[in-house]
Design a protein around this nucleic acid. Structure first.
Lengths: 112, 112
DNA sequence: CTTCATACGTAGCTACGCTACTTGTCGAAC
DNA sequence: GTTCGACAAGTAGCGTAGCTACGTATGAAG
């Protein structure tokens, strides 16, 4: 998948992944890769800053822990994050419909 | 619609609009607005540079004309542009499926 | 003891859409 | 007869945000 297409949708993806339970950064990368069958293989330079953004915005909260000698920062959805995710879902629906009107097969030549 | 969501999909939209016939810049803006029911109201600072990009890439060709005293630059899809549009459509399909797996209602908790 | 997977992180780059602006014609309103 | 809004083109500079390319450190495997 072309990289830049993700622009503006990454936050939604992160919130969606965390919806199913708290995860640490590295695990989030793996979850994205797994659930997308490898289409989404995002570098740390993308997701770590994104998680910080979401935390600054209050949509996730993080807690440090140590698992077998390795430091982990585990992120969890906040209530605000759950609300934000709902909004992102609505936004995605609209975006999908709008762009689909031009790119989906059988796009109407003119609006009826 | 939030603005930045469009990132990376604008070229596809422009090609799709021109697929149905040559149009000049201003008319393209109006076509986008019309076919999206007003969701896409893009400023000239967005579409004029984008059209230049597409022309540099060889996906569209432009010709000047004067209609009732007003200069028009009319853009037309090239063969390369038609091929590019097909590719963009495929890319859109994949993007839609991938992101949809996370954001569409009933997203699977895990890949089956 | 070296290499790979795990795990965190940042600095700087780049792409690209947006804001705000300029230039100019035409028709309608006043 | 001038002013204002739709039509039509364009650019300079900005901001956002994902990516590249690093750096650090532990544990397991060979």
């Amino acid at each position: 998948m072309k990289a830049q297409e993700l622009h503006g949708h990454l936050d939604a993806l992160l919130l969606a992944v965390l919806e199913q339970g708290a995860l640490h950064g590295y695990a989030i990368i793996e979850a994205l890769r797994a659930r997308s069958d490898g289409s989404l293989d995002l570098p740390t330079g993308t997701i770590y800053p994104a998680l910080r953004r979401l935390e600054r915005a209050g949509h996730v909260a993080s807690t440090w822990s140590t698992v077998s000698g390795r430091e982990r920062r585990t992120y969890e959805l906040t209530d605000s994050g759950r609300r934000a995710l709902a909004g992102e879902r609505a936004g995605w629906r609209e975006f999908q419909l709008t762009v689909g009107r031009f790119l989906d097969p059988g796009s109407p030549p003119n609006p009826a």
